[in-house]
């Protein structure tokens, strides 16, 4: 299952990680999902409640999730995933990410931010049918093809 994002939303989630560096950013992805594709239509920034260890941990307050779920419902969308950043760390899921991932069928997007600049962004689908058989599977991020770059020289 691929993750489809617009270029502005893709830039937005990466920029969020740069803004919060050296702390982790986090947010919620609203959109829709069918059998083969998750389409993100709205991105909601969330606060990181892990102020005790914000450089390497994140947590989204349940109240923010409830607000996001309400907003999604009103817009005819659903929560389809989440994003966070890894400051000076690869864009790969960690043991902590896996242990604390519970939204089966949703996308978990991770952006590596090196010295304040967003580098690699990866997405992982939390596959499985229950906690005991869940797994992260890499998924392609599909962006609209860019307009041809015309060099004036």
């Amino acid at each position: 299952m691929t993750l489809k994002l617009s270029n502005p939303l893709y830039r937005e989630l990466r920029a969020h990680g740069e803004e919060t560096y050296p702390h982790e950013c986090c947010g919620i992805l609203l959109g829709s999902a069918d059998g083969s594709e998750i389409t993100v239509q709205r991105l909601l920034r969330a606060g990181n409640t892990r102020t005790d260890s914000a450089h390497n941990r994140y947590n989204i307050a349940p109240q923010e999730l409830i607000s996001a779920q309400r907003e999604a419902r009103q817009a005819g969308l659903e929560i389809v995933g989440f994003y966070h950043s890894h400051p000076d760390h690869p864009a790969q899921w960690s043991a902590t990410d896996f242990a604390e991932a519970h939204w089966l069928g949703c996308a978990y997007v991770i952006t590596a931010v090196e010295q304040g600049r967003a580098t690699v962004t990866n997405s992982f689908l939390l596959a499985g049918t229950r906690e005991e058989d869940k797994s992260f599977r890499p998924q392609s991020i599909v962006l609209p093809s860019s307009a041809p770059h015309l060099d004036s020289d």
Partner: peptide, 17 residues
């Protein structure tokens, strides 16, 4: 009544893959 699984994580440990 809202049922909300938690959302948390972070790069505090090395990837396990």
């Amino acid at each position: 009544l809202s049922i909300i699984p938690s959302i948390a994580g972070g790069c505090s440990k090395e990837p396990s893959i």
